[in-house]
Simulated assay, not measured.
Amino acid sequence: MYRARDHVENERWLAELQQAADRLELGTAARSRATDLFLSTVSEWDDPSDRDADSRQAVVAASLYAGALIESDQRSQSEVAEAAGVARLTVQQRWKDLLDEAGLEPPTW
């Protein structure tokens, strides 16, 4: 769960998420799920050794991929990475852990 303050503190990143979702032409449900995932887990991903912007951009990408997957509006990791401005490997390495942090079970396929 997240607080209203999390939304305010992450306005920039939520705007980035929406812009990437526009580029991916994601539906409303996938966008909403990605936003919830981002806000629910972004504080878990703040790594003092990482640069803050890189860490949050990675969470944006992982949230988009996972949100689209959950809502059956799937896009490839490469498509999401390109839309979010990160490497495909970033999406690959983060999305399952993001689901786990949100209390969701990643698929086992």
Rank of each mutant, 00 (worst) to 15 (best):
A68I: 05
D97F: 10
T28K: 13
S76L: 04
Q74A: 12
E9C: 10
E9Q: 10
A30P: 10
L89W: 05
R75E: 03
L14F: 06
Q18F: 09
L17N: 03
D50Q: 08
E82R: 14
Y2T: 10
D36E: 14
Q19N: 15
A87S: 04
A4Q: 10
H7E: 13
L17V: 06
L69W: 14
V80D: 05
S63P: 02
W45C: 07
W109I: 04
L26E: 05
E9F: 07
T90S: 13
S72C: 12
W45P: 06
Q18N: 11
E71P: 08
R88W: 03
R94C: 09
Y65T: 04
W95G: 01
T41N: 11
A15C: 03
E9H: 03
W13S: 07
L39F: 04
L14C: 02
T41W: 13
D54T: 09
R5D: 12
A81W: 10
N10T: 05
M1N: 10
E44R: 15
T90L: 00
S32K: 15
A21P: 11
E71K: 11
A81R: 01
V91D: 09
R75M: 03
P106S: 06
T108A: 12
L64E: 02
D36V: 00
Q18L: 12
T28M: 07
Q57A: 14
G85P: 03
G67W: 02
S32W: 00
D100Q: 14
R51E: 09
F38I: 08
E44D: 15
V42R: 06
Q77W: 00
D50M: 11
Q57K: 13
Q19K: 08
S43W: 09
R12L: 15
V86A: 12
Q19C: 07
L39T: 06
P106R: 02
V8L: 15
S76I: 02
H7C: 11
D22L: 06
R88H: 09
A4K: 08
E79D: 15
D6L: 07
T35V: 02
A15G: 04
S49Q: 11
V86T: 02
V60R: 00
D22A: 07
A58S: 14
E82C: 00
L104R: 12
V8Y: 12
A61V: 00
Q57E: 05
D47W: 11
D46E: 14
E16I: 00
D36F: 05
A61E: 07
E82F: 01
A62R: 05
G67A: 01
S40W: 07
W109G: 14
Y65W: 05
A84G: 03
S63A: 13
L89A: 09
A102L: 08
A29I: 13
L99S: 02
A102H: 00
A30H: 08
R12I: 11
V59N: 09
D100S: 13
Q74S: 14
T90N: 08
Q93S: 14
V91S: 07
D54E: 04
R56S: 07
S40I: 04
A66P: 08
V42L: 09
F38N: 04
L24M: 06
G85A: 07
K96M: 09
E101K: 15
R5G: 09
A20K: 02
S32H: 04
G103C: 04
R5H: 13
I70D: 05
R75Q: 06
E105Y: 01
R31Y: 09
E11L: 15
A81F: 14
Y65Q: 05
A102P: 00
L14S: 01
Q19I: 08
E79A: 12
A66D: 03
Y2S: 10
E105C: 03
